[in-house]
Each structure stands twice: as structure tokens, then as C-alpha cells.
Write a protein that binds this DNA or RNA. Sequence first.
DNA 1: ACCACTTGTGCGTTATAACGTACAGTAAAA
DNA 2: TTTTACTGTACGTTATAACGCACAAGTGGT
Lengths: 187, 187
Amino acid sequence: MQNPSDFLPGNLKKLRSVRQWSLTQAAEQTGVSKAMLGQIERGESSPTLATLWKIATGFGVSFSELVNVATPVKDKTRVVDSNLAKKAISDDGMLVSIIQDFDLALGFEWFEITFPAGYERQSAPHKKGVIEFISVLKGSLIMEFETEIKELSEGQSIRFQGDREHGYRNHTKQDTVVHCLMHYAGK
Amino acid sequence: MQNPSDFLPGNLKKLRSVRQWSLTQAAEQTGVSKAMLGQIERGESSPTLATLWKIATGFGVSFSELVNVATPVKDKTRVVDSNLAKKAISDDGMLVSIIQDFDLALGFEWFEITFPAGYERQSAPHKKGVIEFISVLKGSLIMEFETEIKELSEGQSIRFQGDREHGYRNHTKQDTVVHCLMHYAGK
DNA sequence: ACCACTTGTGCGTTATAACGTACAGTAAAA
DNA sequence: TTTTACTGTACGTTATAACGCACAAGTGGT
């Protein structure tokens, strides 16, 4: 993550400009003095957390919208074809196609995975805080955790902590196709 | 979003405890005085943005990990069955099943949607900054935007700005089933 | 041109963040 | 038991955030 102090001045200026508020109006809405708001916009002062919160709530924006890298103006429309993009990632034949690779703005990555008939796999714990989703598109899948086993059939989805050990098993005679989405805590 | 000042003291204490750092060691790593770190942990002082950044980088965590609601220690494993949970949301017969309703920690909501044969729908723009994914599980779908049209077949996925007008069209004689995921900016 | 009002900046004052240091309490070693 | 080292807190000092107010410049109306 980048230094919030680099973005706060520009973000605040933009938020005020979009609303067409003067410093006086912004001061009224936020309860922070116009002199201070001016200093922040000019990068002449580093406000306290309490003052930042006053500003965020006064403008009706989230905290991160105030201090984070501004979200891009235009997100590109993009199409991905999982039929064309399949690739094997292990010797045992599991196939993975990326629907969305990790994007900081989203905080997740999303795959289509094919587990061949009879396939088994034990997954090491992912990074701390990872939340994982498996949604079964075709076939069925057995999910194994330390203390429980879940059998998922077509149309069923599971959410679980990806930061603990888990296993996948396709005990059937046909391929299982799933969506696998992993969300990383703290983005 | 909730007031970061409510969470910072606990978050900082926890981060330090996990690393088994004394205040002295934390002060060395962050470049912030141990007296100040102690004040922050006890909620006796509201640090400036610059000081918060020093702390975050010293601990090697993201800014949001320092000031946001701490991620839950245990995320519940939960299974959702889209086969059982379908419900009509409009008179024209589109069916929606929730895989994951909006969760602040994730920043998105995720649906399985069935567009019946011949179905058309124009969607008003969602909230500013929304990024939307459509992944076609069964059948095909035509996506219409202001300046372009995309035809998606089974296995294809599209990412686009959900905050602009768009339309869905299933021109075929069979149902189309998709996953629709909407990510909200700024969580 | 003159006047009234608004806007953003600068400045002095007040409040508090941030610091360095001393110290009481605790734990471990001699 | 005594000594040493470490820990977190309190306190006084320094630096700066945050404020209220004055003012120069700009704008719009008469």
C-alpha cells in the first residue's frame, strides 16, 4: 500500500470540488475548521485520525475513499474465455483457467477449475485471513477439513477459511467443474 | 464504516502481542516513541496520519489492517444451495439465488441468476465504482452497453463497470444461467 | 465606480500530539 | 536476598495540529 499522505490532499480537493462546496461549506458539514481543511488540501498538515473521521463522515464517504489511491476513472471491460484458457497446473491433471487474477482494487482472484474423475488434492493453508469460495458448476465435489467433510453437488457453493488446511476429492466417474474465488484480507 | 478510533487501540495491541514485541521493540521498528504507542493502545491519543503510516509500515501491515474492524477470528463455513434457494424477483421471470450477500469484509455480493429463454432486461447503473462480473454457466447471453455489444457463450466471463447502464438479453430458446458478482468500491 | 459578499490564505493562540526521561513494578539471574 | 534488566506508565517539554479571526483578492449587483 502507498503512503496515504500522498493521496489525501488530492482526494479531499476532488471530493469538495465534485460537491461544489466552498471551504466554508465543507467546514460546516464536517465540523473541521476551514483553515485546517485548506492546510490539508495544500498538504501543509497531517491530520489526526479523529479529524479524518470527521471529514469522511461529513463528506459521506468511506475512510478509504479519503486516504487511499483514488479508484480508476474507467475500468476496462474485459472478456475471458475459460474454454480457451485452460491450462494444467499439476502433473495430476487438474485444470485451471483464470477468470480474474488478483486485483488489488477487488481483493480477490477467481478461477474456473476442473477436477478430473477420481481426483484428490490436499491444499496447504493459504495466507492468513483468506476466505475461499467453491461453487460447483458441474458434477460434485467432496471438501475435507480438519474436523468435517462437506459433499457439494451441482449448484451448491461453500464459503470457508482458506487459511486452514483443506482437501478436494472428486470421487465420481466424471469431471467436476467449479468456480474457486479467494479473497485476501486487508486487500 | 465504523469509527476507526474505536478499533485502533485493540488492533495495535493485538498486532504487537502476536509478534511478541515490547513497546520498546515496536518503537524501534516503527520509529514512533514507545510513550506514544502506549498512549495509542490505551486510547489516550489520536495519532496523525503520518504517525499511523509509520506504525503500519513498521509492523508490515496494510493501513486498513490498523484502523479497520478487525477481521473475524473465525469465518463460518457455510454451504448455500442455489437449487433450493431460487426465487423470482421480477414479474418477467428472472430467477436469482444468493451465493453470498453483501459482506463488508469481502466488498462484494454474488448471485446465481437464471435468464429464461427470450428474456431481456435493462439494468440501471449501480452505485458509483461498482465493478460487475458475469460468468456464463449455461447457455449464452448478450450484454449490451452504450457503445458496444458483447455476446457471451458458456464458459465466458466478462468484467465491466456496473455503474453505467447495461442490458442483458437471452435470445435463445433455453434458459441461461450465470454467476453475477458485484464488487463495491471502497468496500 | 462603489458596495456587499464570498473565498482561500496567513497568522497568532490554544489544544494536543509526540517526544525523552524518570520511575515503580516485575522477572530472572547470581 | 540482592542485583540487573526489562516493561509500561506518568510527566514535563517541544512540535505541530486545529482553531478563530483578519484580510487581500475576486465576484456579482447596483
